[in-house]
Design a protein around this nucleic acid. Structure first.
Lengths: 237, 237
DNA sequence: TGCTCATTGCGTACATCGTACTCGGTGACC
DNA sequence: GGTCACCGAGTACGATGTACGCAATGAGCA
């Protein structure tokens, strides 16, 4: 028997002893660990220990670790609350989506480390597609819609990556904060002092200044993206 | 002694026997393997075998596998040719960059699997920053510039991910092509036939139609992004 | 009621990974 | 010509994902 795609294999048939655990419990435990210590800390043994199970017991519920990660990603998508969308006001809807997506990424920064080439097809992900793309669906052809939603996703993803970047890098390095700061600053300072990188130097100076609140910065960029979307819409929308 | 950031540890001091290999050769070999079989196939032992070295010999040149991946990423950035940029025509420059970036990603799709939260600081990456951000630097403040470049990067990345998605997913699954196609189509067909996902169905139908050339599609979306950039520029540019 | 056997949780075991430690050999420097 | 920093690489360790097998369980049928 081949391993089936996770979404096509049912939770469980009947007969025999009742299952003690569940996909949901396992997924939840894995997310808890990943939130606290990163995705690489969510090993099969560790997840099993978290729910008091033996390591191999997980495989009665999930075909492989990769499939479990797929489940985790879909569970995270489920946190994006789009009730009432589409509402008729596309700008408000997309802003709402962008805020929800950003909040979700900030709660679970390890999502950035999930290697995905194609969008997932879990129930939450499908529900999201319907709601989100329903916002522009009456107004633009489907391929245009895909492009615009992709643009929005790209913006949010990039912005959040920048927000969580330093903290994640610090965690991944395994160094203590002062150690990491010292090492990083030393290198950056050397580059700045060399004088060969004028624009990089500007970026560093800007980053070290107290800047706009993260929220305002995000909203500012988002407004630009939405203006871009507006330009692609038919005039009377 | 702590592991130093890869960019601060010099290639090699003097004294003792001459090194047989080099960072460049190792990086090259690793990229060759990753191109052919994915990043996960580029293990230390495999890379060493590729250049005829012992596995542990690599650690004379590179502190860790993660650092080696950093080197690989910078080498890939070096493939982005921006000679003559900035030219004075920002639109042409950014189009050139987008095309180069897309071509690079298509040559090395495994770059999508490199977990990076912060931009790298290798020599090629720094050179790119100077040239690329120099395009808009006279016209917009640095934080605005960062946002716009981020938007452009997000667009290209998203578009290329979509282009290489199916092929990468197929490779990662380890299944044979007909097997994967059968399984995937079966699941998608079930979703479509259920009737619960009208917009997803539209997407599938659109994807199965013979569509615009990839290049035209990419250029179309890119034009939209550049219009968005233009809107953020001061009027007389 | 009692037998059957699919299904349970999980211990053991293995291949593979990154890499710490260690060694004998080498050759630039004082 | 002696010293010793540096070379390449073998051995070994801990951790990982997971294949396999086994005893216990309990729903369905006789």
């Amino acid at each position: 028997m081949y391993a089936m795609s996770i979404w096509t294999s049912p939770e469980r048939p009947a007969r025999g002893p009742k299952p003690v655990y569940s996909r949901a419990r396992i997924t939840e435990a894995a997310i808890r660990i990943a939130d606290a210590e990163g995705l690489e800390a969510a090993t099969m043994r560790r997840i099993a220990a978290e729910i008091g199970a033996g390591a191999m017991s997980l495989y009665r519920y999930v075909p492989s670790r990769d499939d479990l990660i797929e489940l985790m990603a879909d569970r995270l998508t489920g946190e994006i609350d789009l009730t009432g969308v589409p509402s008729g006001d596309w700008r408000a809807d997309l802003t709402r989506y962008a805020d929800e997506l950003r909040a979700m990424w900030r709660r679970h920064p390890w999502i950035a480390a999930v290697p995905r080439s194609l969008p997932g097809l879990g129930p939450n992900q499908l529900r999201l597609i319907e709601r989100l793309m329903g916002v522009l669906d009456p107004h633009v052809p489907i391929d245009e819609n895909l492009g615009l939603v992709g643009l929005l996703n790209g913006y949010v993803e990039g912005a959040v990556r920048e927000e969580i970047g330093a903290a994640e890098e610090l965690r991944r390095s395994g160094l203590s904060e002062p150690e990491w700061m010292a090492r990083n600053h030393a290198h950056v300072d050397r580059l700045v002092k060399s004088g060969d990188h004028p624009i990089f130097t500007k970026i560093v100076m800007e980053a070290r200044r107290p800047h706009l609140s993260r929220d305002d910065q995000f909203r500012h960029g988002l407004r630009r993206v939405l203006d871009c979307v507006a330009a692609a819409l038919p005039p009377a929308t």
